[in-house]
Design a protein around this nucleic acid. Structure first.
Lengths: 154, 154
DNA sequence: TTGCATCCGGTACCCGGGTACAGGTTTACC
DNA sequence: GGTAAACCTGTACCCGGGTACCGGATGCAA
């Protein structure tokens, strides 16, 4: 049965999409990739569209969506094709929400940038000294509040 | 022996600095906090300056420095007080390097922002459809390169 | 001296996004 | 039919910055 005209083996798909082979199985577990067909021996055989799908996943991830959000987006689209009702948020809603997050993060980084420049301009070169003297322009109290607002980096 | 006029217990320091008590021990392990004196029974007794030190640590962290970098900065300042030679980078150097990182991250986020707005303007609402049609403005190929350059978020 | 709050060390777990390894099949080509 | 490459499952580990839990010991006041 050499009629494997268009299926991809996991290694081929991984190479084509530029991801690790383990990542494919990881995405499968996370629900981003549907369980593919198998050979009689149990080896995965992916349809050619999978390459495009992986590229979409990577693009969405690059836009700041978490894997859970990407899974939600993909699930939403398949469900919309099938059943009429749509419970999941579409790309428009999630992108709008993500845009707000990105803008907040940019603003936050500008605050940080300003503080860094201030510290450099003031010639601070010793944290222990800064901690004791009041010369240092590092806004020890102020920064913390913004932190709560924007959330930690990770 | 009630002459504990100025020492802080770990719980007191944690409360005063607004951190978890476990975090204090964690910082001690990481070398950010020197090992404090102990009571006869082995309980930690911190000097009052520790509160300021913790605030500095939090401020530095807020500026984007990792705990390792903060430790390096603190270590550098104490070593400079002691021995004459300085091997560690000072705040000036690290801040300059961090500034470059922050600027790169801001630029990267602007790229992401643009892509998000483009996708919203184009009315994309289905990733699976976007993957197949060429209508979608999501720059599937381009984004990946920038990613390598700026590094992943976490 | 009793009783309760606090503290101790050690270990294990959390988040997100993977990656690595071990040890056992399957496939493909000669 | 032999052999090497590719594949399989399951489990454990990585990064950074903490947090939680446990059983036992201390501190302090009444």
């Amino acid at each position: 049965m050499t009629t494997r005209s268009d299926g991809l083996r996991s290694g081929e798909l991984a190479d084509a999409a530029g991801v690790n082979q383990q990542t494919l199985r990881y995405y499968e577990r996370r629900g981003l990739l549907a369980e593919p067909d198998r050979t009689l021996g149990g080896h995965r055989v992916y349809p050619p569209e999978s390459v495009a799908l992986l590229r979409v996943i990577k693009a969405a991830q690059r836009l700041g969506f978490t894997l859970d959000e990407v899974a939600e987006l993909l699930e939403a689209s398949t469900h919309r094709h099938g059943a009429g009702r749509r419970a999941k948020a579409g790309l428009q809603e999630l992108a709008a929400a993500k845009l707000v997050e990105v803008d907040a993060r940019i603003a936050d980084l500008h605050t940080i940038r300003t503080a860094l420049v201030d510290a450099m301009d003031a010639g601070c070169d010793d944290l222990a000294v800064c901690a004791k003297s009041a010369c240092c322009p590092l806004p020890f109290a102020d920064l913390a509040e913004e932190d709560r607002h924007a959330g930690p980096c990770c």
